[in-house]
Design a protein around this nucleic acid. Structure first.
Lengths: 150, 150
DNA sequence: TATTGTTATACTCTATAACTATA
DNA sequence: TATAGTTATAGAGTATAACAATA
């Protein structure tokens, strides 16, 4: 299509704007980015221990303990014990949590559908074609983790 | 390329993951998302009044007053008076603020370059081709604003 | 009287440090 | 002794309400 080579700076700028966009779309939301992303992690990756969730979300273990406590209080997740190690707490997404996440996604999808409706057909095609690549870009980071020392 | 029609839900899911990715990349950062986005807004849109910044970032006017005070204390922005209306405070990005933003972008660009390096050439092309569309998607929202009542 | 911004106060969320329980 | 998680305390950031200055 284009001969333009992908430039990290351009990509960073584009993604930076995406964050800005989503922040504005989610402005009316009660739920914080960390909270939403934690639910998303549990949804896509399945049950997870506190320490691993903390590492994934880039917060401390105590902070994740409290976040999980809030989510548990709201009925969105459940604490369960690990069968082989009594020290470990496995966090499970509840049906209510999955529903909450789904509702949030649908609301966002409606807004994005509306925005996408203002684009040209070519633009929409370009976005649709890039989604799988975006998926793999994120996967590359997840695999990467470990030496993310700033 | 693909015949797949752009689906708001798929787009929402993809963008959701992008946020997750960038949050993790920025984990070591001192600077918050709101702070970074405020600097970005000033950089791309030029000087701006407090109330407008607050509306753009989805925070209250007092919160923006305090954020601007912190940024001013750090030398990243400057308060100047509006020539025609003495009530208005115009917030200007300083050279130091622009540098800080640039440094953050470059660090991010390096990481993204590294991640993109693990993708196939086709994937990189797809991302490069989608960036202008992404740009226009964000622009559509900016134009939109006003009736974003949840 | 309406608008722009600031100050006062309370609440949420997070980090660091100290602690408990299990391996 | 090391690991997983919790509790205690303090600090950053935000919201609501009350206020000051200008239009």
């Amino acid at each position: 299509m284009t001969k333009i080579r992908l430039d990290g700076a351009a990509l960073a700028g584009g993604l930076e704007r995406v964050v800005s966009l989503l922040r504005r779309l989610a402005a009316g939301d009660r739920i914080s980015l960390t909270t939403a992303d934690t639910l998303r992690t549990l949804d896509t990756g399945g049950p997870c221990r506190i320490s691993e969730l903390a590492a994934l979300e880039g917060v401390t273990q105590p902070a994740m303990t409290q976040l999980v406590s809030r989510l548990e209080h709201d009925g969105l997740v459940e604490r369960r014990s690990h069968p082989d190690d009594a020290r470990v707490v496995m966090v499970h997404l509840t049906a209510a949590g999955a529903e909450r996440l789904q509702a949030r996604r649908e609301a966002r999808a409606r807004l994005l559908d509306e925005l996408a409706g203002r684009l040209s057909g070519d633009d929409r095609d370009a976005l649709a074609a890039a989604l799988p690549a975006l998926e793999r870009l994120v996967a590359a980071q997840t695999t990467y983790s470990g030496s993310t020392t700033t």
